[in-house]
Amino acid sequence: MEGTVFANDAKLMSKGQVTIPKNVRKALGVEIGDRITFVVEGSEIRIMNSAVYALKRFQEQMKGRAEKLGFKSEDEVADWIMRSRREENG
């Protein structure tokens, strides 16, 4: 559903609960038991899959660090990660 634009309504229940419509759950890639994140920016609110949100935040925090450490490509970073994992696992 990447790039798809649609709108859905949901009713707010007495305890503040809302059922997320099926097509919205599908677009978020979430299933029963998954977590979602509410991102509030001024008067706008985005709902995101929490795993996706965490990954985006991590990528933002790490931006530019690989270059500072001398890595010149994503392959070099991936190789370093694989070597590090092998060392950790003996």
Rank of each mutant, 00 (worst) to 15 (best):
V18E: 01
P21W: 15
E74Y: 03
R35S: 14
F58G: 00
E87C: 01
V5Q: 08
M82V: 11
G90F: 00
D75P: 00
A51R: 14
A66I: 07
M62I: 02
L12I: 14
R57W: 08
E41Y: 05
E88R: 13
V5C: 07
E41W: 12
E87R: 14
K56N: 15
E67P: 00
I81E: 09
R83D: 06
E31A: 06
I20L: 05
N89W: 07
G16K: 14
K22I: 05
K63Y: 02
I47V: 05
S84F: 09
F38R: 10
P21G: 04
E88C: 05
G70T: 07
E67V: 01
N23G: 01
G29F: 02
V24S: 08
L55P: 01
K11H: 07
I32R: 00
A54R: 13
F38K: 04
S50T: 10
G42T: 04
K56C: 03
P21K: 06
E41N: 15
A54S: 06
V40C: 10
K68E: 14
E76G: 08
K68Y: 13
V39D: 12
R57M: 14
L55T: 12
G64V: 09
S50A: 11
S73G: 06
E74S: 05
R35P: 05
E31P: 09
S84N: 05
A66D: 02
R46H: 11
E87P: 00
G70M: 04
I20V: 10
N49E: 13
